[in-house]
Computed example of a mutant assay.
Amino acid sequence: MTREVSDKQETGERPDLEHLDAAVSHVDHLVSTGGIAAGAAKGILYSLIETLGAFVGDPDLPEHARSGYQGLLETARELRARL
C-alpha cells in the first residue's frame, strides 16, 4: 500500500475511484484465471460492494463522482452474480 492511500484512510477521505476499480479488475482477473477461490472472491467483492454502496449513499458526494462509484458498483455486482 502506498503512503498516499494510507494518508487518505487516516484522514477519513475516500480512496480514489481508480484504486477501487483496480481492486475489482484484479478480482475479475483472478477469477477468470482460476487464481482465487470463488468463496474468497465473493468475500472481497462483498466488501467492495458494501464500501461502494456507502459512498453512493453519501449525500455529500458530488454528483459527478457518484456516477463513477455507481458504475463500479454495478460492475462489482455483475461479477458477484457470475460467481
Results as ranks from 00 to 15, higher is better:
49 I>C: 12
37 A>N: 12
49 I>A: 09
58 D>H: 03
78 E>K: 13
31 V>D: 02
69 Y>C: 03
50 E>C: 09
44 I>G: 02
29 H>N: 04
70 Q>A: 14
34 G>H: 09
55 F>V: 03
62 P>N: 08
38 A>W: 03
51 T>W: 01
53 G>D: 02
52 L>C: 05
72 L>N: 07
43 G>N: 10
60 D>R: 09
47 S>W: 08
74 E>G: 15
71 G>F: 06
35 G>S: 14
51 T>Q: 06
33 T>F: 01
59 P>E: 06
63 E>Y: 09
73 L>A: 10
75 T>Y: 07
52 L>V: 06
46 Y>A: 15
68 G>E: 12
43 G>M: 09
40 A>N: 14
38 A>E: 12
68 G>C: 07
70 Q>P: 04
66 R>H: 07
68 G>N: 05
51 T>E: 01
51 T>C: 02
74 E>I: 01
58 D>C: 03
61 L>F: 04
39 G>C: 06
44 I>Y: 03
47 S>N: 15
65 A>K: 02
50 E>T: 12
40 A>D: 15
37 A>S: 11
73 L>E: 11
77 R>M: 14
44 I>C: 07
35 G>R: 13
49 I>T: 10
55 F>A: 02
76 A>Q: 09
48 L>Y: 00
29 H>D: 08
36 I>G: 04
34 G>R: 00
33 T>D: 02
51 T>P: 00
29 H>W: 06
34 G>K: 00
59 P>H: 10
73 L>T: 08
62 P>C: 08
44 I>H: 05
35 G>E: 13
38 A>Q: 13
77 R>P: 09
72 L>W: 15
56 V>Q: 08
49 I>E: 02
56 V>T: 08
56 V>A: 05
67 S>N: 10
38 A>F: 05
71 G>P: 04
77 R>G: 12
75 T>I: 01
45 L>R: 11
69 Y>K: 07
50 E>I: 08
47 S>D: 12
73 L>M: 13
71 G>K: 05
66 R>M: 03
55 F>L: 02
39 G>N: 12
68 G>Y: 02
57 G>R: 14
55 F>R: 01
77 R>C: 12
44 I>Q: 12
29 H>A: 08
29 H>G: 01
70 Q>N: 10
42 K>A: 15
64 H>L: 04
54 A>L: 05
53 G>E: 01
58 D>I: 00
61 L>R: 12
32 S>I: 05
65 A>E: 14
43 G>S: 10
32 S>R: 15
42 K>P: 07
55 F>K: 00
78 E>W: 12
50 E>K: 14
60 D>L: 05
58 D>T: 01
38 A>Y: 08
33 T>N: 01
53 G>L: 11
35 G>M: 11
40 A>E: 15
38 A>H: 11
42 K>F: 00
68 G>S: 07
42 K>Q: 15
35 G>A: 13
48 L>Q: 11
57 G>P: 01
30 L>S: 03
54 A>V: 06
65 A>I: 00
65 A>R: 00
59 P>G: 04
61 L>W: 02
53 G>K: 06
41 A>D: 08
51 T>N: 06
40 A>Q: 15
35 G>L: 10
58 D>P: 01
29 H>K: 09
49 I>Y: 08
29 H>L: 08
59 P>M: 05
72 L>Y: 13
65 A>D: 13
58 D>L: 00
